[in-house]
């Protein structure tokens, strides 16, 4: 049983080969971190998982079925920027997905349906720690709060796969550590598989169950165009992290003490 299967996928733009021969099987509820240097095709790969772009060759299966050629509600996404809608309030953003799903004509719900969705949305807003900000617009939120909002908005659709494109890259370290705690908790509690693109190796090792490195193996100038990046490292964390269970080490951070400065060293290892 695999959540995602990638079979011999190539991606080319005209003559430029970006990714070559990527094969990958991702277990359900895994948290995969994609790392690699800039321009190695991590984001392109994520876009193919999202359905925004198609592989030139090969195919991608989600729970055994071929991926539809366009984005859909089974795959959620959080980008570094532009993930939330500037014209909707926090509550409006979180309610947006369920409202669209419930009302195919107007995209708005009324009465009992609306109250039910609003209740779910308020619970979700509480989950990600945004209580009290329901009536604010995204531009009135800090970067960290915007990303919390983006996570809440995506999770309302209960996606099977959550795709994260450098979601915490623009946040400063303290905020980032807080949102890592949130991300870990969500991954433990929500039945979903996560694929995250990141530049930050420490982030990759402190969140993921498995780390996959994309790299170009041929880098001479005349080779750059005709050889793409491929998987060069595939590291499964040891001791294994399993969603919803504790690791061999009882806890990652002491209760009430999530200061990253105190626990930075252990959380950067292969724990």
């Amino acid at each position: 049983m695999t959540a995602l299967t990638v079979e011999r996928v190539w991606k080319e733009y005209g003559d430029q080969i970006v990714l070559e021969n990527i094969s990958l099987e991702v277990a359900p509820r895994a948290f995969v971190a994609l790392v690699g240097p800039s321009g190695c095709g991590k984001t392109t790969f994520l876009r193919m998982l999202l359905g925004q772009e198609q592989p030139t060759r090969g195919r991608i299966l989600l729970d055994g079925a071929p991926l539809p050629p366009e984005p859909g509600p089974d795959r959620g996404v959080v980008y570094q920027r532009y993930s939330v809608f500037p014209h909707l309030t926090v509550l409006g953003n979180v309610m947006f997905g369920p409202e669209l799903r419930a009302s195919r004509r107007l995209g708005r719900t009324f009465g009992a349906t609306r109250r039910r969705i609003e209740e779910q949305a308020r619970t979700m807003i509480g989950e990600v720690g945004l209580e009290g900000a329901e009536t604010k617009y995204p531009a009135q939120l800090s970067g960290g709060m915007q990303q919390r909002l983006a996570l809440a908005q995506a999770l309302m659709m209960q996606p099977r796969v959550l795709l994260l494109d450098e979601p915490f890259g623009a946040l400063d370290p303290g905020i980032r550590a807080d949102i890592h705690v949130l991300m870990k908790r969500l991954w433990n509690e929500v039945p979903m598989t996560v694929v995250m693109v990141t530049h930050d190796l420490r982030e990759a090792f402190s969140l993921a169950t498995r780390i996959i490195a994309f790299e170009r193996t041929r880098t001479r100038t005349e080779e750059l165009e005709r050889y793409g990046a491929t998987i060069t490292k595939d590291i499964v964390l040891w001791p294994p992290r399993v969603a919803g269970q504790r690791t061999m080490f009882e806890i990652d951070t002491l209760p009430g003490r999530d200061d990253p400065a105190l626990f930075a060293a252990p959380s950067g290892t292969t724990r």
Binding site: L50, P71, V77, Y82, F85, P86, L100, M157
Partner: peptide
Amino acid sequence: LPREQIVKAETLSASTWLIGLRVVLPQ
């Protein structure tokens, strides 16, 4: 409008009509 917003709306189950009505039009 950033392409990301359109894709995001698609992952929130929006159809073309709903993207036009609820994402693009108000903006």
